[in-house]
């Protein structure tokens, strides 16, 4: 079976700085994969390469076996890959409902239609309402997204990301900056909405990672130094030495 995502010797330089220095990674379908690593290791950059935001300096990226290197974000999105952003990236001047509806339009086949009225599409409205309930923002339906609380915006970010029904979901630090209870709610939401899908997640919270992930890749200075099950990664001397150590012990406690 082809992998959901396959990276082969992926490289990215910004000017002279080599940020991603030859990454090989294979993520199977329906796998929940966490990417961890210190700040500045290149995790977000790797996301941006996979999703087409940045062009590759070298290497190959395959999505469901198809080479997607050099494609634009919207082309990759149409091939069934969707992502969220580390810094909330929503349509701030539109209502929560409209944000979700925008996330649905392409996947429901509306394309660039200027001959259908969105308010008359009952299936579209229904799907948007369902999503609204799924991310627990039912009572914020007509609120302008820009005035939501931070946690609500993060939930909406997830909602927009999963709206199109993509089967590969990539989340960049979905729980960053959240309180304990908010994090717990977010983890539950992520579990719920990514069921049966391939999930790739950058995360710092070790509790969340060991809770959710089937496999973990450790990215340090643009290289993956370990990629295995949580147990193996936890025990890995290489990882301990390079980066984790103390925080792993914390997660044990």
């Amino acid at each position: 079976m082809t992998a959901a995502i396959e990276l082969m010797d992926v490289r990215k330089n910004f000017g002279l700085a080599e940020i991603i220095r030859g990454v090989d990674l294979r993520i199977e379908r329906a796998e929940r994969h966490a990417i961890i690593g210190p700040n500045g290791a290149g995790k977000s950059t790797l996301f941006n390469l996979i999703t087409g935001k940045y062009g590759l300096t070298g290497g190959t990226i395959k999505l469901h076996g198809e080479d997607v290197g050099g494609l634009k974000p919207f082309e990759i999105s149409r091939r069934g890959l969707s992502r969220s952003f580390q810094i909330t990236n929503i349509f701030a001047n539109m209502t929560v409902f409209e944000n979700l509806r925008c996330g649905l339009l392409w996947s429901m086949g509306y394309k660039y239609s200027f001959w259908t009225l969105v308010d008359r599409q009952s299936r579209l409205t229904e799907r948007a309402e369902e999503l609204l309930e799924q991310i627990n923002l039912g009572d914020r339906r007509d609120t302008i997204a820009g005035v939501l609380t931070y946690a609500e915006q993060r939930a909406l970010e997830i909602g927009i990301t999963i709206a199109g029904g993509a089967d590969v979901i990539m989340l960049d630090e979905p729980t960053a900056g959240m309180s304990h209870s908010e994090t717990a709610a977010m983890v539950q939401l992520i579990r719920k909405v990514t069921e049966g899908k391939t999930l790739v997640m950058v995360e710092h919270d070790m509790g969340v990672i060991f809770d959710v992930a089937d496999r973990i890749s450790v990215l340090v200075y643009g290289e993956i130094i370990e990629s295995d099950t949580p147990e193996v990664v936890r025990a890995s001397a290489k990882v301990k030495e390079a980066y984790l150590g103390s925080s792993l012990d914390e997660a044990d406690a």
């Binding site: 349509f91 660039y112 709206a163």
Partner: peptide, 12 residues
Amino acid sequence: DNEERAEFLGYS
């Protein structure tokens, strides 16, 4: 509002 996000939703 956000041209980048629109691209990641499948729209050029």
